[in-house]
């Protein structure tokens, strides 16, 4: 409970879209930052093409779009440190943890299911 008497709930943001092709990834990040301001217990899950949100070396100069990938590294400063990445999704894309720009926990599908099951609120992007 915070000083204001607010209830802390477990929020999970499920990210399943690649960045830039659609606005989902950026919108998710915006809501994640808002939720941090409300001192909630926030987790981020990256599945399917969502794992591409975290690839190192993104450079959007040629697209004239904002490169929002550095923001994932700033999440730690907002006490958002629970980042879970689906192992199967990395594997089918030929990616490893070393290809990602933040520290994450790589989990199996079964582990991800357990994490999802313990949330109060799950928001999907």
């Amino acid at each position: 409970m915070s000083d204001a008497g607010g209830v802390v709930k477990k929020f999970m943001f499920v990210n399943r879209k690649a960045p830039y092709g659609t606005v989902y990834a950026l919108e998710s990040l915006e809501v994640v930052l808002i939720s941090a301001a409300f001192d909630q217990d926030v987790s981020l899950a990256f599945l399917d093409d969502g794992v591409y949100e975290l690839t190192k070396g993104q450079s959007t100069k040629g697209l004239e779009m904002k490169n929002f990938s550095p923001t994932y590294r700033a999440l730690e400063g907002y006490d958002i440190e629970k980042l879970y990445v689906a192992r199967e999704s990395l594997e089918e894309r030929g990616l490893s943890e070393d290809d990602l720009l933040v520290d994450v926990q790589v989990v199996s599908c079964a582990e991800m299911a357990d994490l999802m099951a313990e949330q109060d609120v799950v928001l999907s992007f």
């Binding site: 690649a18 960045p19 830039y20 591409y52 690839t55 190192k56 070396g57 993104q58 450079s59 959007t60 100069k61 040629g62 697209l63 779009m65 490169n67 990938s69 030929g94």
Partner: peptide, 13 residues
């Protein structure tokens, strides 16, 4: 398309 590869950090793959 190169700029789309660059944006996604995958041009080296």
């Amino acid at each position: 398309l190169g700029p789309d590869l660059d944006a996604r950090g995958v041009a080296n793959r």
